[in-house]
Design a binder for these strands. Structure first.
Length: 237
DNA sequence: AAACGTTGCAACCGCTTTTTC
DNA sequence: AGAAAAAGCGGTTGCAACGTT
């Protein structure tokens, strides 16, 4: 099975998996455009990346989602919409593709079960309320911002150009920081939703939550006028 | 046992965002 | 500053496995 450019498509075989694994183990993740050549694979970079991230990566957890995970997915989805990578970022060892697939199956199940409940259906001519999705907005932090509380922004000296605020004052300038920032918000408002394994989600982050506490003003920035936190975080199907 | 329907998951595609030059 | 390349993301599809009739 080959594509228009002679690149193989379709299911991966064991040999291809072995070649890709060996390549990633030797050179590490990233530089995906070099992977097909390095590994001797007749696959495009996207295909290699996807195969590794969704299947070959040894850090992926397989099997059914636990109740805690499902609960977290529901709440995060209500908060973030279809931002699967962000949602998966809060679920250790789950991939965005897994979460997305699970969600799609879950929705299908829910829809089919709801069909039986005729009364639950909206009447004809009923206008459905639009689903408001709250998306995190990029925040620019000036060097004098009170968010930093006197911390220093380092000029990028290392490979990590995106999150160069000192660890204690990490803002939301990179995807990882976004996730941490979201975690803070969620934890501030409903610690139960983080589940058992996430009781100490900041243990590995080296930064002090107190330096990043949400003030009422910050929260108002995040919510619509008619919303409270319980509207967003207390998910009920 | 065969035909058909459903489900779950891997993979592809097109688009957007980020990085590099 | 702008263009090109690379990386990343979400929507969608294809198909094998499984269940039901």
């Amino acid at each position: 099975m080959e594509g228009t450019l002679g690149v193989r498509k379709g299911a991966w075989n064991n040999l291809e998996d072995d070649l890709l694994k060996a390549c990633v183990q030797q050179y590490g993740e990233g530089k995906w455009h070099l992977v097909p050549k390095r590994a001797g694979l007749n696959r495009c970079r996207k295909s290699c990346r996807l195969r590794w991230l969704n299947y070959l990566n040894p850090n992926i957890k397989r099997g059914e989602f636990t109740n805690d995970e499902v609960d977290l997915i529901l709440r995060l989805h209500k908060l973030l919409g279809n931002r699967w990578s962000l949602i998966a970022g809060r679920l250790p060892e789950r991939t965005p593709n897994d979460v997305k697939n699970y969600w799609n199956s879950y929705i299908k199940k829910k829809l089919s079960s709801n069909k039986e409940d005729v009364n639950a259906r909206p009447k004809e001519n009923t206008v459905m309320e639009p689903h408001i999705v709250i998306k995190p907005q990029p925040r620019t932090i000036s060097t004098t911002s009170p968010w930093l509380r006197g911390k220093v922004i380092k000029e990028d000296e290392s490979e990590n150009k995106q999150c160069n605020v000192t660890s204690e004052a990490c803002g939301a300038s990179s995807p990882e920081c976004n996730i941490n920032w979201l975690g803070t918000i969620l934890e501030e408002n409903d610690t139960s939703l983080l589940g058992e394994q996430n009781d100490t989600p900041f243990e590995d982050l080296n930064w002090d939550k107190e330096h990043f506490a949400m003030t009422p003003t910050n929260i108002e920035d995040f919510l619509r006028e008619d919303q409270s936190w319980s509207d967003i975080v207390d998910f009920k199907w």
